[in-house]
């Protein structure tokens, strides 16, 4: 159950998405996040959903894996959707009312949009970044993009290294958590019954050994890295050289067009009517 968390896990492959330059992927992710937050009507969300589905298909990562990444946040999604449905006040007649509880059309829209927004955000960024980019490539990308900051004394390399190590050890620590849980279950520990407080308390004997071992691991890893002559980015070279290729720029153009499309779509009054109106608008402008 706990090993279902796939966030921060890399699936090696050779798809188009895998081959994109990590720096470009970071830029694309920022554009993608912008799209997700700009989108506020049906047409934009349809476009966004199609866009995300295409990304998933291109990455050749199984749909089941992608959905597993969303699973841990389902509870939060349901909760926020619930709040949105009941707490959004609207004008005119409510669709349904029961004493003080009123449901307006706009509330339902908001609930659906919010849930979609979070799901698309998670799926899109994990497809673009964590699933298809090896953490070291990701680190290289971040380092390269942020390297101008080195001039003003920001420890960009250390920061990138810390991040990549954190990513590297997520599966290891998840495995370990599973092991400790099993060890404690076999001695009668109960993680799955009782109220919230009781369950939270049951986690303490799980977290203590996990932290102890994480510190031990950190210590050993630091020694091992030192033995392999690690001394920060001083005079360090890279196995993989980052080079932008034609496909990077093509993808960038697609993303920019999509973002512009969504911005335009969401800023015209008739946008909610759908892509038809959106195209009409485009042609009208041209």
């Amino acid at each position: 159950m706990i090993s279902d968390i796939t966030l921060g896990q890399f699936f090696p492959g050779s798809s188009v998405i895998h081959k994109l330059d990590p720096r470009m992927k970071l830029i694309l992710s920022v554009l993608f996040i912008a799209m997700v937050f700009v989108a506020n009507n049906t047409a934009a969300f349809i476009l966004l959903t199609v866009f995300t589905v295409v990304l998933v298909l291109l990455s050749k990562i199984s749909l089941a894996t992608v959905l597993r990444g969303v699973k841990p946040i389902i509870l939060i999604l349901v909760f926020t959707a619930f709040l949105n449905v009941f707490l959004t006040g609207g004008e005119g007649e409510p669709l349904w009312s029961f004493y003080f509880l009123k449901i307006y059309e706009i509330g339902i829209y908001r609930a659906v949009f919010m849930a979609l927004r979070v799901i698309i955000l998670i799926v899109g960024t994990s497809i673009l970044l964590t699933y298809t980019t090896s953490p070291i490539a990701l680190t290289d990308g971040i380092e390269a993009l942020l390297s101008p900051l080195k001039r003003i004394g920001v420890p960009v390399h250390s920061f990138a290294m810390m991040m990549s190590i954190a990513l590297r050890f997520i599966p290891t620590l998840v495995e370990e958590t599973d092991k400790i849980m099993n060890a404690q279950k076999s001695r009668g520990a109960d993680f799955s019954s009782g109220g919230l407080v009781k369950r939270a308390k049951a986690l303490i004997p799980l977290l203590v050994p996990l932290f102890v071992s994480a510190f031990k691991r950190a210590d050993e890893l630091a020694v091992a890295m030192e033995c392999r002559c690690y001394r920060g980015d001083k005079n360090r070279t890279k196995l993989v050289k980052l080079t932008y290729r034609a496909r990077d720029f093509l993808t960038l153009i697609v993303f920019v067009l999509a973002l512009v499309g969504i911005i335009l779509e969401c800023n015209i009054p008739s946008g909610a009517l759908g892509t038809g109106a959106f195209l009409e608008f485009l042609f009208y402008r041209v």
Binding site: F10, P135, I136, T172, C229, T237, K238
Partner: peptide, 26 residues
Amino acid sequence: NPDNQLVATVVEEDVAFGPENLGLPR
């Protein structure tokens, strides 16, 4: 402990970690 000495998430990138630190050409 083999787990606590591997830095990278891809085998060849891990093997490259040492030579990278030595500043060797690509």
